[in-house]
């Protein structure tokens, strides 16, 4: 069964009056990211909704802001979904983590951090999930540029030399020049744009 989102909004506005909410489509946008844990805890423990199952935590990039979307369901009362959103900018991408409240957010927030760079404060172990630890960049952001696999960067050379692999001098010079210019090794775009 679906819960009408206006009912949730009304209940939240009456119980937590200082939380600013906005209705977007079929979901609620929490204007201030710091209110998120309070809202989630309220929805989890309120006897009317009992939303005890956090199904999905996703990130999304909308060019001017990054968004974190949450889908809640209730296993006790078998209703849902309730969609919540939080928006941040890519300069200050900090959102309080829901991992202390819902364990299911643990791995999914790590994935959102890995692919979008959204930093979840209060997460017990926020590190990259799919990419290796030293990877730089956030692949699913819209402004991510594909790295060129054949051109080494200064950090790559340091990693390789620490493991005893010799690098030819000209590759080291190229890497230092890139680093001095503040650029990354970017792959060439294909000549014909995709239709």
């Amino acid at each position: 069964m679906n819960i009408p989102i206006e009912e949730i909004k009304k209940e939240l506005e009456s119980r937590l009056p200082d939380v600013k909410l906005r209705l977007i489509g079929n979901s609620l946008l929490i204007e201030n990211a710091d209110d998120l844990p309070r809202v989630a805890l309220f929805l989890k423990e309120s006897p009317k909704f009992l939303l005890d199952y956090l199904s999905s935590v996703t990130g999304a990039d909308y060019l001017t802001f990054l968004e974190s979307v949450y889908h809640f369901y209730s296993m006790a009362k078998k209703h849902g979904p309730v969609t919540l959103r939080v928006r941040v900018t890519s300069h200050h991408p900090k959102i309080p983590s829901l991992a202390p409240v819902y364990r299911s957010a643990e791995l999914q927030e790590r994935e959102a951090y890995d692919t979008f760079g959204i930093i979840y404060e209060g997460h017990p172990d926020l590190r990259r999930l799919f990419m290796w630890e030293e990877f730089q960049g956030y692949p699913l952001r819209k402004d991510y540029e594909q790295e060129d696999a054949e051109v080494l960067e200064v950090s790559d050379i340091a990693w390789l030399e620490a493991r005893g692999i010799k690098i030819p001098a000209e590759m080291k010079e190229k890497a230092k020049a890139l680093y001095a210019a503040g650029q990354r090794a970017v792959a060439h775009k294909p000549e014909k744009p995709r239709p």
Binding site: S55, S56, T58, A60, D61, R103, E106, L107, Q108, E111
Partner: peptide
């Protein structure tokens, strides 16, 4: 614009 898969195998490993 955005496509995400909520994978049960990943979350069941929590």
């Amino acid at each position: 614009w955005r496509y995400h898969v909520r994978a049960p195998s990943l979350i069941n490993l929590t």
